[in-house]
Design a protein around this nucleic acid. Sequence first.
DNA 1: GTAAAATGTTAGTAAGCACTTACAAACATA
DNA 2: TATGTTTGTAAGTGCTTACTAACATTTTAC
Lengths: 204, 204
Amino acid sequence: MSEVQHSTREKILEAALRLFSQKGYLGATTKEIAAESGVAEVTLFRHFSSKEALLEDVLTSYTYLPALKEIIPSVSKLPYEEALVEIARGFLITLDLRQDFIKIIHSERHLYSEKLLKGYHSTINEIFVTLAAYLSDMQKSGTLREFDSFLAARAFFGMFFSYFTQSHLLMFKKYGPSETDHLIKEYVGFFVRGTIREGLTNND
Amino acid sequence: MSEVQHSTREKILEAALRLFSQKGYLGATTKEIAAESGVAEVTLFRHFSSKEALLEDVLTSYTYLPALKEIIPSVSKLPYEEALVEIARGFLITLDLRQDFIKIIHSERHLYSEKLLKGYHSTINEIFVTLAAYLSDMQKSGTLREFDSFLAARAFFGMFFSYFTQSHLLMFKKYGPSETDHLIKEYVGFFVRGTIREGLTNND
DNA sequence: GTAAAATGTTAGTAAGCACTTACAAACATA
DNA sequence: TATGTTTGTAAGTGCTTACTAACATTTTAC
């Protein structure tokens, strides 16, 4: 067990992340969060001026999905299908790691500020744009047919994000690792055939 | 404005649906719900034994997505691509109509009972199975290649559900009607080419 | 070892919450 | 008109909540 040394502040942030994602912002009490952190409630308020400030700090501390932008360059030399499999795999892993954060964002959409929402949006957008750029390149090189690359990226991540939502957030049919692998390959299969240039393409 | 005559009970249920979806179960107070319904708070408790009972009644009253099962048979004679466009359109319309319900389900996942969750799951499953059956038929008739039809159905709805989630629940880039039409056509385009039988299919 | 900084303990406050009681008013039905 | 049903008003109960104050204790830094 390689437990890292956590500061009081970090312990509180982690407990808050966990409890907010499990019970919602209003459902998790400051008393509970303090107990879960192993500190007194008053200590929580000495580190964070209010419960709302705590939420803000949680959301900015555990911010979302930087990893994916690095995956795409690193796989761009692979064959198309393999590259997509790696992208999908990386995407699902990242979602898994950040699931508490994502749960909060999806549950407490009415609470958090315009600023945070915009940050989340721009991150999503960045992800789409990054994949879209890769797809655009593949179109220019003649591998892929013509289509709206931004929408394609959105469709691609949409398939996987929906699977994640259903299995993690709504506890609907969740697969084991080998089945997830199967799912990835099938999904990528649809997308590859859906986007690749074929001999018999009839453009209108 | 063709306002229907609503019973007190119905007025409360509607207001509760609206407020629960906007502010969450804990965020919406019984006082507010009563005010929004135009009744006294005590009247709310004469119709519903508790706030929790009210939530249960809201969720069972505005239950989810029956429409889609009727769409698929009605379009099964259309060409493949047109059929999928109609299915996608119907799906998005239904999601739109039920968006308050869906918002609650996604926000309050920690609150509602095992029973309700199972009901929701079986509805989702039914939708997937219905489309999967249609796809299976198309495979047997030779129009489509071989693939896991359940996963294909899940991927198809996943693309659109993700778009719905992002635009309605997270207020990320939402398109107007004509742009949505464009999105549907592009998404369906990917899926059609991803699933159709091609002359030059190289199965391993 | 000593001062300072961080934490714990205990008690408390003010507000908001779901929910109740008692009684009066409005309304429909006969 | 009389009667039962539904609603409103008003007041209040008991509980929980976020948050604070005062003081004791522990941990850290030099």
